[in-house]
Computed example of a mutant assay.
Amino acid sequence: MNPPEIHQAGVRDVEFGARVRIVDPCNLYGCKIGDDCFVGPFTEIQKDVMIGARTRVQSHAFICELVTIGEDCFVGHGVMFVNDTFSTGGPARGNKDLWRETVIGDRVSIGSNATILPVRITDDVVIGAGSVVTRDITSPGTYAGNPARRLLADR
Rank of each mutant, 00 (worst) to 15 (best):
T138V: 14
G76N: 03
G70N: 09
D48G: 07
G10F: 02
H60P: 00
A9L: 11
F62Q: 08
L117F: 10
V49P: 00
D72T: 07
N83H: 08
K32H: 13
S112K: 01
V79F: 05
N27C: 10
V125I: 05
V49F: 00
W99L: 08
P91R: 11
T142L: 14
A148F: 01
G128A: 02
I104E: 00
A114L: 08
F86N: 15
V82M: 02
D123T: 07
A53P: 04
D36K: 09
E44C: 03
D154M: 14
N113L: 07
G10V: 05
P140C: 13
Q8I: 13
F81K: 02
D72Y: 14
T138E: 14
G76C: 09
N27R: 07
R120D: 12
F81V: 07
V75T: 05
V132D: 03
V14N: 07
T122A: 12
Y143I: 05
V108I: 06
H77Q: 13
V126L: 15
G52F: 03
Y143P: 06
I116S: 02
A92D: 03
T55V: 11
G105Q: 09
S109D: 13
L152Q: 15
M1E: 11
G70H: 11
G145H: 04
G130C: 05
V82I: 13
I6K: 10
R93E: 12
D84N: 12
V67Q: 00
L28F: 03
V14G: 08
V23R: 11
V108C: 02
Q58C: 11
T122R: 07
I110M: 08
F74M: 12
A148E: 01
V119F: 07
T142D: 08
I137T: 07
S112A: 15
V39F: 00
T88C: 09
R56Q: 14
I63S: 03
